[in-house]
């Protein structure tokens, strides 16, 4: 047996792309793929739009009293459906992750000289963009159907922050599930549990205080509850009844700050976990 060790001459440093350029390329790729599968964008809109245009006004007719804080019930439910729209949108985005893994270019991306977390962050950027467009479409539909929104700059800021944080949180959940669940069928089977069940408990159709105490306590821990309270505080209810139902503190801005903190913490943790899950699934 002959062993020959040749001198190892270090080559000139090999450079890959700048991270921002790589992230932009990955984001453009995901946009292009989403554009080829419009169901990813359109399908999550169907149920919330149905709620906004048909179910909310019908319920408002049945329940002639105003919603919490004197807001009209139809508007209350329309904003509440954002809490369904974003989870559905992010869940559909997760299907793209599974397709990438099973029949797409994921391994090529993993072999690229870019930090692998950029692959997840590129997908997240597109999930955010999609959610923003869908929320805008839902609000437009609600406004056309007669929703009465109370829009101020500060209120819009709270609303936008809640949409962003809640989308980041939900995309983190979807990315983790998409990387851990082997098949698309199993993943889709989890959608009702992940996207729909928390919505019913989170004050989407009625205040959390209307539920039994035990369930209300569970609801107060759900990120969806904090998101919905912030969304309504931002665009519908400046008195923040939903926030007071959660925190029981007198100052609305403090309650809003606390809910945004909770939501941001959830978003940060889930994003970190999703990056870790992706790296673990990408490298054996």
């Amino acid at each position: 047996m002959t062993t020959l060790t040749l001198p190892l001459v270090r080559p000139a440093p090999t450079v890959g792309p700048r991270p921002l350029a790589a992230w932009a390329a990955l984001t453009r790729r995901r946009i292009a793929l989403s554009a080829h599968t419009p169901r990813e964008v359109l399908a999550p809109l169907v149920t919330p739009i149905l709620f906004a245009l048909v179910i909310a006004p019908a319920l408002a007719r049945l329940i002639p009293t105003s919603g919490p804080g004197g807001v009209d019930y139809s508007s209350y439910v329309i904003i509440g459906t954002i809490g369904l729209l974003i989870p559905l949108s992010c869940t559909f985005a997760g299907i793209g992750v599974i397709v990438d893994r099973t029949a797409g270019a994921r391994r090529e991306l993993i072999a690229a000289p870019v930090p692998r977390s950029l692959i997840v962050l590129g997908n997240l950027a597109v999930a955010l963009l999609t959610s923003l467009l869908q929320v805008a479409a839902l609000l437009l539909a609600g406004w056309a159907r007669g929703a009465r929104l109370d829009v101020t700059a500060a209120g819009f800021g709270w609303f936008a922050a809640a949409v962003l944080a809640f989308t980041v949180f939900m995309y983190g959940v979807s990315e983790i599930l998409a990387n851990r669940i082997p098949t698309q069928e199993e993943y889709v089977g989890l959608t009702p549990v992940v996207a729909i069940l928390p919505w019913f408990l989170a004050g989407s159709l009625f205040p959390v205080t209307a539920m039994p105490a035990g369930l209300a306590a569970v609801a107060r821990a759900l990120p969806t509850t904090h998101a919905l309270a912030l969304l309504r505080y931002g665009l519908l209810d400046p008195n923040g009844h939903g926030l007071h139902d959660i925190w029981g503190v007198g100052d609305t801005a403090t309650a809003a700050g606390l809910s945004l903190l909770v939501l941001t913490a959830w978003a940060t943790v889930l994003t970190a976990l999703s990056l870790r899950t992706f790296r673990r699934s990408a490298v054996t």
Binding site: A21, A105, A112, P113
Partner: peptide
């Protein structure tokens, strides 16, 4: 093109 972009 995507490969080229990712490889700089």
């Amino acid at each position: 093109r995507l490969h080229a972009q990712l490889w700089g």
